[in-house]
Write a protein that binds this DNA or RNA. Structure first.
Lengths: 117, 117
DNA sequence: CAGTTCCATCGACACTTGTCAATTGATACG
DNA sequence: CGTATCAATTGACAAGTGTCGATGGAACTG
């Protein structure tokens, strides 16, 4: 499970004395941190990160049947990874007859990308 | 477990006919994808992402006793998250007497940050 | 020395993840 | 119609994750 992020106001140490200097606060809001962590989590697997790389570089839509042979995992495993990327909103897919085409939602990566720079 | 990323050369479909147009290849190398996925995974939790935010904004070194009260989790849970960040190489720590100070290794975020932009 | 404080580690727990083989569902083709 | 193909889903399993309370170890305080 992903951790619950509930920021609380700064408290003193139990003995009432601050152990060290100035108070630090996060600049990111709770909701923002959760959105970005969700995206980062989805990128946190080499296969999924490479999938995103392929889809981004290709610009257009890519057929799943093109993606499967790029990796040494079963078709069902790759389908599972694509679902994770879909669930995170990073990619979308489209069926055309027998084939499924995937493409990146670049906007979904922007917030994390901006925070990281 | 993180998936094994072993790219294989493009194969034809079983019936010998490609199902769709042109071959796509990842631009990221296997090792690079694994490095970046490791970083992304470490950022894939709201608490850890916020910790990085705090440490980055603060520039200097931050005492753990400053970090604990910012989150609604136990001290041991926070320590666990800090360890994950240490294991990923994103942060380092330093003991000074009773206190432990954490700081960001900005270089470790660069590769992912660059790839993402 | 004895007590306290900070932080890391341990043990336990429920939940999630990555993986596969097998199945299913939809579509195309002969 | 029956068969073949692509991709998603299901069920299973070992491994990993996030969480806590309790314990441990180091170092300061009196």
């Amino acid at each position: 499970m992903s951790s619950e992020l509930t920021l609380t106001p700064k408290q003193k140490s139990p003995n009432g004395q601050p152990c060290c200097e100035p108070v630090v606060y996060p600049d990111v809001e709770r909701a923002q941190a959760e959105r970005m962590a969700k995206i980062a989590k989805a990128l946190g697997d080499p296969i999924r990160l490479t999938l995103i790389d392929v889809l981004r570089k290709h610009a257009g839509k890519v057929c799943v049947c093109e993606l499967v042979p790029l990796f040494d995992v079963s078709q069902s495993t790759l389908s599972h990874h694509l679902k994770k990327l879909r669930d995170a909103g990073i990619v979308d897919s489209e069926r055309q007859g027998l084939w499924a085409y995937y493409y990146v939602n670049p906007e979904e990566l922007e917030e994390l990308s901006a925070w990281l720079s």
